[in-house]
């Protein structure tokens, strides 16, 4: 299970993000779409989201507010910001919030796929390392003389 959440207010772009990449083929499951921050939060609560791609400008709750709320609630996930804005304060804000990457519109879907795959790999590697470590720890526990 490798959950991907795509947050974008514009329907056409959201569809592009969701449909132009065969996410399932690359092991992303489930692939979720949200039109604003509130919708995104609701989905995060329900599904195990590993990577979130979010637009900045959105009605109701924008991207920055959404990220802050995720950090506050302590969810662990990779966050990729996509925006038309290249302004300094957004970049600054993103760095402060420990955003994983920043994609400037317009971009080809494969770029997003590349970034998403890279993070997936990283996460999987971390996961593998963590499970290896756990295995070793288990073994150590087992082999430890009573």
């Amino acid at each position: 299970m490798f959950g991907l959440l795509l947050v974008e207010d514009e329907e056409a772009i959201r569809k592009k993000l969701m449909n132009n990449v065969a996410w399932a083929d690359y092991g992303f499951e489930p692939v979720l779409g949200a039109a604003n921050g509130l919708e995104a939060l609701a989905l995060i609560e329900k599904y195990p989201v590993k990577i979130m791609v979010t637009d900045v400008q959105m009605p109701k709750m924008n991207g920055i507010e959404l990220i802050k709320e995720i950090k506050r609630r302590g969810y662990q996930m990779k966050i990729i910001v996509i925006s038309g804005f290249a302004e300094f304060e957004y970049a600054q804000e993103s760095i402060k919030l420990n955003v994983s990457d920043y994609l400037l519109k317009p971009f080809a879907s494969k770029r997003l796929l590349e970034v998403a795959l890279r993070f997936k790999e990283e996460l999987e590697k971390e996961e593998a390392e963590r499970s290896e470590m756990n295995d070793l720890r288990d073994q150590l526990k087992k082999t430890k003389p009573l």
């Binding site: 514009e10 056409a12 592009k16 925006s83 038309g84 519109k105 080809a108």
Partner: peptide, 18 residues
């Protein structure tokens, strides 16, 4: 407005991709 332009261009890419 950059937002309008970039989103439109992004949309065009999306359309081309499909």
């Amino acid at each position: 407005k950059p937002h309008f332009i970039y989103n439109t261009l992004d949309l065009i890419i999306g359309l081309l991709e499909t």
